[in-house]
Amino acid sequence: MAEGHSVSYTTICLARTRAEIKSFFRQRESVVFTLLFPVILLVLFGSIFGSQDEIIPGTPFINYFVAGMLGAGLMTSSFQNLAITIAMERDAGLLKRLRGTPMPKSTFFIGKIGLVMLVSLMSLALLLFCGVVFFELELPVDARHWAVFAMVYVLGVTACTLCGIAFSSIPKNGKSAPSMVSPIAIILQFISGVFFIYSDVPKWLQNTAAVFPLKWMCQGLRYAFLPEQANIREVTGEWEVGRVALVLGVWIVVGLLWCLRSFRWRNRDDG
C-alpha cells in the first residue's frame, strides 16, 4: 500500500530536531538552568573576584575564569542537558513510543545532537558577549588559537553529548535524574579549573579531574583565550594542546561504547 511513497531520512532528522528545540525552549527551567545560569555565575564571580588577581602580569583572573565558564557552559548544554532530559523522556514513555514507530533509531540521536549544537553555540555566544562587554575579555588572537577553540568545542561537546546520552540510563527514573547529574557536574567544575585555578587545586583532586573531559576542555579553552606565556600557570608549564585532543578523543570512543552498551528505550521497571 505504501509503494510509491518513501520516507525521507532528512525530513525525519529535521522533524526530530525541530521537536527537540521546541520542547527545550518551552521548558523555562531548562532554558534558565542551561543558558542563563552559567552567564549569571560568570557575572557574579567575575564581579567578585575578577579584578582582584592577575594570572600573569597584565592578564586578570577573569580571563582564566571566562575560559573555565565556557567549558562549564559547553558541558551543561550537552552532558547535563541530555543526561537529565533523556532520563525524564524515558520515564514519561516518549522513548518507548518512538521505538514503536518506524523511526530510524539514529534520527532520535541526531535530533538531540541538533539541539545540543544550537544550545551550546548560544551558550558560547552569551558567555563571550558578557565576557567582552563586562570584563574586557580578549578573543583568541590568531587563526591558530581560534582553531584550537573550535577543536575543543567539537571534541568536547561530542564527548559530553555521548556521555550524557549514556548517563541518562543510570538514574532509576526521571525524577532522580537531576539530583544524580547535577552534583557530578558541580564537583567536576570545582576541581577542573572552572571556579578555581587548576594548579591551585590539591594534587589528588587534580588527578581525579584529569580523568574526565572538563579539565581538558578548560585547558584547551585557556590556550585559546589567554596569552601564550600564561602557560606558566598550568601544572606542567605547557598548554598540551595535543594531549587535550587526545584525551577528548578517547572520551568520544568511551562515550560511544558506553552508549552502545547501556542505552535503554524503556524504564528499568518496564522489564
Partner: peptide, 27 residues
C-alpha cells in the same frame, strides 16, 4: 501502537506532535 499510559509530549502542541510523527511514515 497505542501504549497504556503516557505522560510525554507535554511541551509540543497536538498539531506539532502529529506533524513530528507523520514524518516517520511513508503514507
Amino acid at each position: 501502537i497505542v501504549l497504556q499510559s503516557t505522560k510525554d509530549l507535554t511541551e509540543l502542541t497536538v498539531a506539532e506532535s502529529l506533524a513530528t510523527f507523520a514524518a516517520l511514515y511513508p503514507d
